[in-house]
Design a protein around this nucleic acid. Sequence first.
DNA 1: TAACGTCTGGACAACGTTGTCAATTCTGGC
DNA 2: GCCAGAATTGACAACGTTGTCCAGACGTTA
Lengths: 371, 371
Amino acid sequence: MLDATPRYAQLHIRTGSRHPREQDRRTVTDTARSTTRYGTRPTMKDVAARAGVGLKTVSRVVNGEPGVTPDTERRVQEAITALGFRRNDSARVLRKGRTASIGLVLEDLADPFYGPLNRAVEEVARDHGALLINGSSAEDPAREQELVLALCARRVDGLVIIPAGTDHRYLEPEIAAGVATVFVDRPAGEIEADVVLSDSFGGARDAVAHLIAHGHRRIGFIGDQPRIHTAVERLRGYRAAMDEAGLPVDESWVALGSTEPERVRSAAEAMLDGPAPVTALFSGNNRVTVTVVRVLAGRPRPVALVGFDDFELADLISPGITVVAQDAARLGRTAASLLFRRLDGADEPPQQRVIPTRLIPRGSGELPPPA
Amino acid sequence: MLDATPRYAQLHIRTGSRHPREQDRRTVTDTARSTTRYGTRPTMKDVAARAGVGLKTVSRVVNGEPGVTPDTERRVQEAITALGFRRNDSARVLRKGRTASIGLVLEDLADPFYGPLNRAVEEVARDHGALLINGSSAEDPAREQELVLALCARRVDGLVIIPAGTDHRYLEPEIAAGVATVFVDRPAGEIEADVVLSDSFGGARDAVAHLIAHGHRRIGFIGDQPRIHTAVERLRGYRAAMDEAGLPVDESWVALGSTEPERVRSAAEAMLDGPAPVTALFSGNNRVTVTVVRVLAGRPRPVALVGFDDFELADLISPGITVVAQDAARLGRTAASLLFRRLDGADEPPQQRVIPTRLIPRGSGELPPPA
DNA sequence: TAACGTCTGGACAACGTTGTCAATTCTGGC
DNA sequence: GCCAGAATTGACAACGTTGTCCAGACGTTA
């Protein structure tokens, strides 16, 4: 699929590789290619020919290496400007072995949760002189793998992965070959690797404890698919808080599954209108929260709510939505920094970093249960 | 700066380029490099040696070309698996001339407005077998140029640019050399190029006309910096609507400038408490809207508001925020499609596409002026 | 003036892949 | 068993760059 063969035509047919017999040696005066032909970029050879110097001298000027007289340098610079030369980093990369680029694979570039993470990774990459190639796995393990391997084929120096799959053994040869790899938000499956996580367990426990502290005893949890690590951790936090308060958990109060609005809506309604109706809800991520807020807005009786993930304007809804905020930018920054530490040669065993979460009370989580 | 020289150490020192005199010719039995050394990837040569076949045969197998007997293919596949070989697309790119990657330069990867655009561009790229390299200009023309030129040096096949600068002549040699380029959201400066825009003028006019239709006569406009094209267009739309209704515009009702909350807050307060207080506000983009909503939430008297750009949960704030919605995904899709049409050889003059906007009434824009 | 070191510039190989083309092996028909 | 023709395979150059090494030019010193 993503195999560096573009699925679009060559804009301009190459002139066919010259056979050695037909290709006369370029002389200094040969300027056949010096005229900027559309679709053909000048090379250092062209610049050298035009400036009347050797190939390596052009290379020296382009890279600011010493050992070139000011006069020669000027001539070369003129030729560069005249031809519109720009160094071909593909060739450079091939020669040097490092691409100065890293890959970021996340679930969905359009999800606002990943925006700050994406940006944070980009900034760290930039600080290290690297570019960022990224793509969405769409929460599909096969697509994740395809994307990751395409990035490896491009020889990215490192990878930041928010995994969709649960088996990352396919990465073993790549890691062995020196591709630094850091997982974010969820741990890698079946391999040892650096991970940077949010404190899902602690955050969830805090959230539910908060609701309990405000008098709730029947609390529902609507979370993401159980194959997603954070969903399981948050469920664990939910159970821990209930447990610590000595509260029983009716199994109808727990619903893990897709974050489709339809599914979330019916799960919420089942909990609110079931035989053991909940008085408060804990929603497992921002997509769930959004739908739950909509459901609750249409109900006469107020229902307490705490959501995992902060979101813009959560304070302006009435009541303000109490959330457990993750620091997505810090997740990204931490992951990228770890990655570059590895690329700088840090040779420690795989690490796991946990980024704390923060409960932000805004009103919805402080609603008391109905009397 | 971003010149493909990573600012991090080489993890593993290369063995120094072998001088021809010291380098004996590899024979079929030479497997020195076949043992997977950490940091050194096997090449087709290694695979060929291990499988006991020629280099080209490996290439054929890797690329699924015909003309290889099943038996040979099997041997090669075994060698590939055993060595953990993966084709080096850098080298492939150098040979083939196309990189199967495109660049996307936008203002801020973390801005939720660009999420769907980013994703849409990615999807189209994926459909064409290309990867996406992206970066943020941070609304800084110098950084935009640096990033764009770094992408050109990597020989991306095409560029999608949300421009920060106003002079893009620096791109002329690149475009002449065949880099397809499409600008989005704002037109290119000083050069002819494809552009995909939202209908800022029409959207703004609709928004203001909507407020006028609900009885407002004194309407304020808070927008982005005047060097940004969309800000100017939206101002033009604002003036057009006022004009068409025969309403005068007091110059204290118009404030273009940074989208910093501080600036927006003071601009809004000046309009609301000034000598000719406005009864309604039109905010020029989502960042402005967010701050304006906060300002209005702290006021006793309701003030009508229409914002440019939709945002999540705008319907759940009370009153719901009336917005002019842009279709960011469609912007991205249109731009990327245009880009690949160019790469497929479309040789038309530069185009300008305008994507319509849509007014979504939710309450805040339908508030009447105070009696 | 000769010997020596320093500085500048250039020839050449190598990075890992693919395109061209020729050499080799296999097939079937006689 | 032999030959023509097809199928398979491999040698080699080339993509555009950088690292190594050597050749001259130049200046300095004895």
